[in-house]
Computed example of a mutant assay.
Amino acid sequence: MKINKMYSYGLLIPAGLIYALLFLYPTVMSFFFSFTRWNLTDWEWIGLANFKMFFEESSLLIGFKNTFIFAFLTTGLKVVIGLLFAVILTSQLKTKRFIRSVVFFPTLVSTIAVGIAFTVLMHPSQGLLNQTLGLFGINGPNWLGDPALAIYSLAIVDVWKGVGIATIIFIAGIMSIPKDYYEAHEVDGGNKLNAFWHITVPLSRPAINAVIILALIGGLRTFDLVWAMTGGGPGFSSDLIASIIYKQYQAGFYGLSTAGNVILFLMVALIVFPIFKFLNRKEVDI
């Protein structure tokens, strides 16, 4: 029995070493270097000075505001749209194969490529989007150049890019629901709308929770799409916390930007873990 246990633990050693090397060690070192002024060859301990400087950043309030707007907006849209697509793709609709290919395609394209493509499509005068609106007599807005609209334009693109993953998770959740529930509901005279609200939604709760958590973490940490499309502009109007941190790296403030990463890590943990606990208490068992 002891030999079997030792053998089982031995199989975990390679994965444990990789996890420690690629996650635990960098995490610990990030916390350490956040209290220093460092470069590639030297470091100096400065205590909490980096954290003080980070919170004095002029664009920080805008970054926090945009990050929360972006994260919660994209999460809500991915849940609603992803669940709608999942219901369609698990139905008997004849065109579901075409819809499936349209929904899943964006997940195969890199985020940078998506950002570049939509930057062209959303050009205020030459972009296909505004040219299409012009055919109907609508004067399209400056999607990425309007400070009041830029963050919402980015959110729309992020939802287009990520809703396919949410749909896959929802399809798995819906397919795991026993058909007996729907058959019994139909025998009792229920319609499809009632079946959706009283069977599909409650019994897909684990999938909904997974999408909420994954989408929320991704939204709070988003960087590449924003940098590819707006670079945080115009001005600081579409800056997120991650893009502010990257600008500090660019300016050579390595210790300051490391402190920003630690703050971002703690912020994500403090937001996601309570939501995770709350959602798990509400799960419905089949």
Score class of each variant (00 low, 15 high):
M175W: 00
E57R: 07
W197I: 02
D158Y: 11
L21M: 09
S91R: 06
R97S: 15
N66L: 06
G140L: 11
Q250T: 12
S176H: 10
Y254P: 01
I271H: 07
S101W: 14
V102A: 15
S59G: 07
G255S: 03
L135S: 13
I46M: 09
P26K: 12
T200I: 01
I69F: 06
V272P: 04
V268I: 13
S91D: 12
L24M: 10
V120W: 15
I174L: 14
G260Q: 06
G127I: 13
D224T: 11
H198S: 01
W197K: 04
T41P: 05
I99C: 13
Y249L: 11
M267D: 02
Y19W: 12
L61H: 07
G232E: 05
V157A: 08
N209W: 05
A184Q: 10
Y246E: 08
G47M: 00
S237M: 11
T111M: 06
G218Y: 09
I168E: 06
L240T: 07
T200P: 00
F105L: 15
G173S: 05
L133N: 11
W227Q: 12
L21E: 05
D224Q: 07
F136I: 04
F55M: 03
A228Y: 08
L144D: 01
I3V: 03
F98L: 15
P206R: 03
A148D: 05
I212T: 04
F118C: 02
T90M: 04
F32L: 09
P147H: 13
K161Q: 13
F33C: 07
Q248C: 10
A155L: 13
L108K: 14
V79C: 08
A155V: 11
K65S: 13
L17V: 10
P14L: 05
I138E: 03
I69W: 09
P124R: 10
F70E: 00
L73T: 11
L203R: 00
K2S: 08
N139T: 14
V187Q: 02
V284W: 12
V284H: 08
I286Q: 05
A49K: 15
G145Q: 06
K78H: 13
I213A: 01
I263W: 06
W143V: 02
I174N: 04
H198P: 00
D239A: 15
G137W: 08
S110N: 08
H185D: 12
P234M: 10
H123Y: 14
L220C: 00
G145Y: 02
S101M: 12
A49L: 14
K94F: 12
T230P: 09
T75Y: 01
A117H: 05
W197D: 02
G16H: 03
I69G: 00
L214Y: 13
I275K: 07
K52P: 03
E57K: 07
F70C: 02
P124N: 05
I13T: 07
T230C: 09
T111V: 10
F278C: 00
L216C: 10
L83T: 00
I169A: 12
A207T: 02
